[in-house]
Design a binder for these strands. Structure first.
Ligand SMILES: [Mn+2]
Ligand SMILES: [Mn+2]
Ligand SMILES: [Mn+2]
Ligand SMILES: [Mn+2]
Lengths: 233, 233
DNA sequence: TGACGGAATTAGGCAAGACTAATAATATTG
DNA sequence: CAATATTATTAGTCTTGCCTAATTCCGTCA
């Protein structure tokens, strides 16, 4: 028996499939050489991939002959290409990425996002395009923030601090951003780089904030909490 | 010489780093056993990964001793954790994904998105949260569209057709959705499944649309173009 | 102290996916 | 049509990352 169990393709094989998809669309069929050039691999790697794809019934392959996709191969390739397209357009039109960068990032991302998420991204894009005020609002905010490439990303966006965490959320402290005395006091309480904090709750006014650290409870003033940068769990 | 050339980590090693990051935050240091359990691998795989990470100076590692991150390891782990967090929150709060699904998809996606894109996603999220009408609008549209799981995704969102393409754009035909006579005529003109079309332009009114296929130029009525489903390049 | 049991490491194997080098098939062309 | 050039395949190697099995280390307890 030993049926083809594996339903899904590796990122690498998805790229081979797409290369064949686009070449066959343009020229009717693909040759190993075309694929090798497009993917930047050696011809022998192409042969190997084709044998695997043929075994999985995604391509019509006979040694030395031109390569075409089976119906399943075409469907699979079209789905990957669709993800590629949606993700790239999202990066460009919503996130304001440079087209070339977006193309490259999309070609990686296409393999790890499900069709589901791609569909939702497309819907989000539609929505944004249908509301020009939002489109311009988003792009303006992004442009402002990412204009100068020198400023490190974390400073640009402003790090999340303990003051931003919701109740029950856990996070790791990455920095205590304050001068000597306060910083020392916080670190002495256990609130140093690398420590895990959990927000227990806050007073109705939002001040003080109750946190748990190393099993102990602490109450922090909002101004203190706002000085502790974290990465959330 | 032979300096550590490779600056970037594999997806697998990034996951090991994160496991150490969270365990060390909670308990001060990690043991191989903790890591193995979290990642669902055998202890011997952990040893291997630790040796690699130690060589790359991301962990402090002595056989049989507790494991901690170096300063560089901590920074790297924090960056991956940050991407994980941002991506998951984006999937949940903007795309309306189920938390558990989002967590899983994020744990894959964290390895293929650059910090840059994660930052931009965070900014987009901020913007959405700051504009409640947008938040509700998007979530309503998504909810409507993805309510019933039976409807296939492509039907839900409505496929892109030749009528939707911008000038100069290339695409592959995946289906001709129409009854007999028209479909046959279009296919006879070369507009069949798998063919590459390029939109050359459209009349000011948007009808007809000039397309190029197999080197030939064709003029399509808008109603005809709207029947040809494609995936864009 | 010494024996035991759990934790960690080593040794060796396997699969995927790339590479080089050698070889074979096909195309081109005088 | 034979010689040559191009293209493709095979054979064998390497790396990564996982596995199992065997072995070693170490903390605990009688
Ligand atoms: Mn790709
Ligand atoms: Mn791609
Ligand atoms: Mn992960
Ligand atoms: Mn993760």
């Amino acid at each position: 028996m030993t049926f083809e169990s594996t339903k899904s393709l590796s990122a690498s094989l998805e790229d081979y499939l797409q290369a064949i998809f686009w070449t066959a669309a343009a020229k009717g069929a693909a040759r190993a050489k075309d694929i090798a050039r497009q993917l930047g691999v050696k011809a022998s790697s192409v042969t190997g991939a084709l044998q695997t794809l043929a075994e999985k019934r995604f391509v019509h392959y006979q040694p030395y002959e031109a390569i075409t996709l089976t119906a399943e191969g075409f469907d699979e390739a079209a789905r990957v290409a669709q993800r590629h397209f949606i993700v790239r357009e999202f990066f460009v039109t919503v996130l304001g990425l440079d087209r070339a960068v977006a193309e490259e990032e999309a070609c990686r991302t296409e393999h790890c996002l499900g069709d589901d998420i791609a569909e939702r991204l497309a819907t989000l894009m539609e929505f944004v395009k249908a509301h020009p005020d939002m489109e311009s609002g988003v792009s303006q905010l992004l442009a402002e923030r990412y204009r100068s490439a020198e400023i490190p990303a974390q400073v640009r966006r402003g790090l999340v601090t303990v003051a931003d965490l919701r109740s029950g959320q856990k996070a790791v402290i990455v920095a205590v951003r304050s001068g000597g005395a306060l910083a020392r006091r916080l670190v002495d309480m256990g609130l140093g780089r690398g420590a895990l904090v959990e927000v227990e709750g806050a007073a109705p006014t939002g001040d003080p904030i109750r946190v748990k650290i190393r099993g102990y409870q602490l109450a922090l003033r909002r101004t203190e909490a706002a000085v502790i940068s974290v990465v959330g769990k």
